[in-house]
């Protein structure tokens, strides 16, 4: 049973002239207890997609979808406010750049306390403040911060990036979410800290059966921690499937290139030889190619590629390419 089921979600940037299709018909489904990776180069619209799911995009963006279901509820039929209410009850998100996501003029403790749901508190209202404090301390313990007194009294700029990320995770846990969306939770972190954060997320997934959507620009970084992976490129859906399939038998030329460019998959190649990469870089929003947006960089591109390809499904392994590599394995 899918808890989250999104079909053909598009996000338009409304400009004074024509709207720009930043995310073009991307589909995403999450099962209960699943860890799914959402991978793509920087600028592929991963953060936009995540923000559209939790409903925090401002009014210069317009979100449409053929289907947007959360645990059987059709969110497209609800009003914006109702949708936000349903989503914010069960879905938590940790944003890219944790430091910027904490209010600089409020202490960590106060920010944690306000994340604690009223429903979880049992006492009379004069006991609530104390209970909130306790709940905040507990949350910090859960994410592995032992000295909670120092931490709650600090302001965000007094903490390190990794600590801020832990605080963000603690805040996300406050409402006991069913789905946690983690947008590049380890970007700009040292690798020991990275592993700690990943391990923390993995343990939350196992102990609480919490689903996690793990966003990253680095395919190799997340393969160890995910069950399934969805790949995006420049706002378009590329490929989705189990982590093994994606990493060992990618059907899409873009995923192939991502795998080929990762050192881990290329242990056998000789030292100091060049890694395979695609030429060029991701197009900017103002100059998107028509049809398949990978076209200008794709080694397999042909005439048909000026039409956007349809998603094909091979036993749950979905790929969006006219000339998929399925036949080559």
């Amino acid at each position: 049973m899918n808890i989250l089921d999104i079909r053909n979600l598009s996000i338009k940037l409304l400009t004074s002239t024509t709207p720009i299709l930043a995310v073009d018909r991307v589909s995403l489904a999450m099962k209960e207890g699943e860890v799914r990776g959402l991978v793509g180069e920087s600028g592929s619209g991963k953060s936009l997609l995540a923000q559209a799911i939790v409903g925090v995009l401002d009014d210069k963006w317009q979100v449409d979808a053929d289907r947007f279901h959360w645990r059987g509820i059709d969110l497209m039929r609800l009003s914006v406010d109702e949708r936000k209410k349903v989503i914010s009850k069960d879905v938590a998100m940790i944003f890219q750049e944790p430091m910027a996501c904490l209010d600089p003029t409020t202490t960590i403790g106060a920010q944690l306390e306000e994340a604690v749901d009223d429903e979880q508190l049992t006492g009379y209202f004069w006991q609530r403040k104390q209970q909130r404090k306790l709940a905040a301390a507990n949350l910090l313990h859960k994410v592995g911060i032992k000295h909670h007194e120092v931490c709650t009294k600090s302001y965000p700029h007094q903490l390190t990036e990794a600590l801020c990320q832990r605080v963000m995770i603690a805040m996300a846990l406050a409402k006991r979410p069913i789905l946690l969306i983690a947008d590049e939770p380890t970007a700009a972190m040292e690798s020991t800290n990275q592993n700690q954060i990943f391990r923390l997320l993995a343990s939350l997934n196992q102990l609480k059966n919490m689903s996690i959507l793990l966003i990253s620009h680095d395919l190799e970084n997340v393969t160890h921690w995910t069950n399934t992976i969805t790949v995006m490129y420049s706002g378009q859906f590329v490929e989705a499937g189990t982590t093994q399939h994606i990493f060992n038998k990618p059907y899409h030329p873009y995923t192939r290139a991502l795998v080929d460019s990762s050192p881990k998959a290329n242990m056998q190649i000789p030292m100091k030889s060049r890694l395979m990469t695609l030429p060029g870089s991701i197009p900017i929003l103002q100059h998107l190619p028509i049809g398949c947006r990978l076209g200008p960089r794709c080694p397999k591109a042909q005439k048909a590629c000026v039409q956007a390809p349809k998603v094909k499904n091979y036993h749950g392994h979905q790929v969006s390419c006219h000339y998929s590599l399925k036949g080559s394995y």
Partner: peptide, 18 residues
């Protein structure tokens, strides 16, 4: 209102007034 921490507060489920 355009900063990340306001967005994050929104995602936390706080109301606009809060």
């Amino acid at each position: 209102l355009d900063t990340h921490y306001i967005k994050a507060a929104m995602a936390k489920g706080l109301t606009f007034q809060q």
